[in-house]
Nucleic acid binder design. Sequence first.
DNA 1: AGAGTATATTCCAAAACAAGAATATCCAGT
DNA 2: ACTGGATATTCTTGTTTTGGAATATACTCT
Lengths: 121, 121
Amino acid sequence: MSVISIYKCLCDEQRLRILNLLREGPLCVCHLMEILEADQVKISKQLRYMKDLGVVEGERHAQWMIYRLADEGHPLLTENLKCLQDCAGESLALAEDLRKRRAVTAHARRTNPVCAEALEA
Amino acid sequence: MSVISIYKCLCDEQRLRILNLLREGPLCVCHLMEILEADQVKISKQLRYMKDLGVVEGERHAQWMIYRLADEGHPLLTENLKCLQDCAGESLALAEDLRKRRAVTAHARRTNPVCAEALEA
DNA sequence: AGAGTATATTCCAAAACAAGAATATCCAGT
DNA sequence: ACTGGATATTCTTGTTTTGGAATATACTCT
């Protein structure tokens, strides 16, 4: 995972939002779809793009693919995601995304325990 | 200057190196060419790209165009440029570029005082 | 085996970007 | 007005990235 790769991921709003979400822990595609209100193909493609650059990793758990930040997170990426909380502020709805994230995963724990459990692993 | 714009500039090696150089103060195109060992058109195009995104500003001084970071530098950009010194390390020759920068501007002060002076303004 | 859910891949057209060559502009000095 | 230096723009072509539609794969449950 090179410095340039990290910036290539961050330079697109949707990818940036995905990384911001993964910062708080792994997520499966269906949760990302729900939080970002985007269709499945688009999300999958973004994840593929970032996986090819080594920024993100995916692991299958039953029928779900759980994605997480690769490498325990390169320091540059970690720093940026932290910084973005304050810097981005209004324009990108990062805080809002995180709020949704909690709602979605909490809900999943009830409706879809198998998937929810995979997130812990 | 948006967050995404900043990352769009940082996600290309040459642009990143230019920003790293501008962090220490304004420079004119001919100095950038010399330090990065790149041809004029390529540098001009990168500067144009970054200017259109509002990340960089240019001002004419006689026949020279002096470029600098816009806006006194967005905090996110500032943070990244600082962080990169350590993070990037070997792969990108950022420290080396800065060394060259000092040599080039020092030399300019002797051979081309008019241009050199414009950098101070 | 068959059906359903979750996710990935492929194909194709559009847009953005990059690189090189040629040319244009702006300014200073004569 | 003319020349030369510094910089910008235009044109063309090739590559990367994006977006939508269709399709394929992987896994689970019955």
